[in-house]
Nucleic acid binder design. Structure first.
Lengths: 158, 158
DNA sequence: ATTTACAATGCAAATTTATACATTTATTTT
DNA sequence: AAAATAAATGTATAAATTTGCATTGTAAAT
């Protein structure tokens, strides 16, 4: 199902980076990127991704991501502020270094973000392997971290 | 235009307290409260209130408030953590007491919440008069405070 | 008190979005 | 590998939402 995941990610990126006001509009942007599909599938994708449509003073209505479910406490897990050392990318995956013994708690928190981008994590003692879904870019992970992890700074990265 | 404001508030309350999945559904709830209107007007109200519709695992799709515009920095003004003393309700308005000299800065921050509930504020030296829109209940204001003001606690209220 | 300007609303039609059903494609089981 | 099961998608249609236009109600100005 590689295709679908890449499409889902492409949708997220488009919605994140531009103000899209209808599925037809999004559909044509996706087609420009080589995705072939119908509006029906897009509607289902948006439902799956929990993309909301909200009024916007400029464009009337726009789609927006809602990863951080406003009222679902389970999704509001805070990432531990301490223990993070560095993050690195290789083989399409992310390798996060932590202080000794901190890996599993951070990995646990990462899992509980329930973010689409992260397919899963495996933690050792001071290292976490983060496996992104197909189609997820390094930048997507960085954005995720930055948006959900107060103490996380790009500059600390390699 | 008293009627319209009360209707707008009723809409906010309903959306906040229940999971509504269509305008028709919301319409009938409003009618049960004595509001008479068409679905077209409701659509315009929702647009005015910037109510978003998002996928929900239980009900398919639900409406939700988006006061806290996720990406609009101007709406993310933080309320000053210090200076608040107490809040009181009288004559349909709220009287907030602050430490001496703190009233205007807090009132300024309140204004910049751009919240629908607050029609306006007037600040003296240590007192702020908060004028709610018609139809806004005491509880609505308290909810607003609690959701936007980290340090605000109900117990401090009278 | 009229007139003028603007905001709010209904109606009907256009647009947009969701979904039932059938079909294809992938995955799992035997 | 074949059969059985589940997942993904297209087509056509239904359902839901938005909007242009006309009208009515409200407020402001003369």
């Amino acid at each position: 199902m590689k295709d679908r995941n890449e499409r889902l990610m492409a949708i997220r990126r488009l919605i994140n980076s531009s103000n899209i006001s209808s599925q037809e509009e999004l559909l044509s942007l996706l087609e420009r990127q080589g995705f072939r599909m119908t509006q029906a599938t897009l509607s289902r994708d948006l439902k799956y991704l929990k993309v909301a449509k909200m009024p916007d003073s400029e464009k009337g209505y726009i789609y927006m991501l809602t990863e951080r479910q406003l009222n679902d406490p389970s999704e509001n897990e805070e990432l531990p502020i301490t223990g993070f050392v560095s993050i690195d990318f290789a083989q399409g995956m992310a390798i996060m270094k932590t202080l000794p013994g901190h890996a599993s708690s951070i990995a646990y928190a990462l899992d509980n973000l329930n973010s689409y981008e992260i397919a899963g994590t495996i933690a050792g003692d001071d290292t976490i392997l983060i496996i992104p879904r197909d189609g997820v870019l390094k930048g997507d992970l960085v954005n995720l971290m930055k948006s959900r992890w107060p103490g996380f700074v790009k500059e600390e990265m390699n």
